[in-house]
Write a protein that binds this DNA or RNA. Sequence first.
DNA 1: GTCTATACTGAGATAGAC
DNA 2: GTCTATCTCAGTATAGAC
Lengths: 194, 194
Amino acid sequence: MSDESTRDQIVNAADRLFYERGFEHTSFADIADVVGISRGNFYHHFKSKDEILNAVIEMRLAATREMLAGWEFDHPEPDERIRRFIDILSANRAPIMRHGCPVGSLCSELGRLGHPSRHEAAGLFGLFRTWLAREFVRLGRARDADRLALHLIGRSQGVAVMANAFGDEKFIRREVRALHAWLARCSQEQEKHS
Amino acid sequence: MSDESTRDQIVNAADRLFYERGFEHTSFADIADVVGISRGNFYHHFKSKDEILNAVIEMRLAATREMLAGWEFDHPEPDERIRRFIDILSANRAPIMRHGCPVGSLCSELGRLGHPSRHEAAGLFGLFRTWLAREFVRLGRARDADRLALHLIGRSQGVAVMANAFGDEKFIRREVRALHAWLARCSQEQEKHS
DNA sequence: GTCTATACTGAGATAGAC
DNA sequence: GTCTATCTCAGTATAGAC
């Protein structure tokens, strides 16, 4: 960790702070403080704040791809894989209650700012969408796979927004259970048809 | 409209700009430009930006209460009233795709800023929650009325976040249909039990 | 590659004239 | 009640020494 390049340290710190405080509300001074470098040193690594944002999005995209590959490695069955997606909500319930979903809040913020990188940020949703849709196809739901993927991501986003607004842990658990039940119904409908 | 008090004009302009650009990203200059007054004049009406925010939240709370009262006046049956809530998503699909849900995005932003008024903003959700729960009770679902209310608001929030991120109008229509179907099932389960 | 010092900007806020 | 002028401060960004 300590021999991590300064550039990587900056990106990691920015990643965390953008999540906790939002992109606009995070200043260079904040990031510099966390990393323990001077403000000036900064511009040796990134020419502007937008460049740091792009680096953070790139890193998140890479991390997400890696996570999805890990799920594929761990579970051969599509429903088990999709369950992993749903369980993000339980596994990260503490940070979600405090700061919401990192993807959802970044997309909302950049959208409102009309920021040029908003489409890249939405690509994080796109990654999950494509991956989930493929698993729903494998589940025998080829005809409405993309619809189901979007529905599931949307449900998760709703849970994150509400958990953040109300700080209600029981609500998360309840909704996660409901989503697992929903997924079970998806699988059964597939089996009925085949 | 033109003989509206300057104070009201400020609150209305702030309300719109906070929705479109977010609270932090809206400056006094922005609001002053819209209203057509000088920056200085501002402090005659509000001592700080936070005071404007509080006035905006108060106004939204009052407007929401009025809207809910209107729904109660228009429809005697609880399921018809709840349908009105779901239909907000269709009725406001254009601004939702552009800016998200005004309640959800304000709560998320104030939460991230750790702003003192974040709980007041969450009160907007609370208003819908209480109102919906009461209608679910009237629908014969006294035991899980609050659970259903939270679930419905959460679903709506998810739709808003996704519609905003992807700008997908078909998605909104599809989810609205799904929510109406869900509500119909809620009513049927009640009828079965009674 | 890292630092200090500093320029420049925009935003919140105040004072005081009209 | 509205204006102009101005203050202060934080944030982005640059220059140049080490």
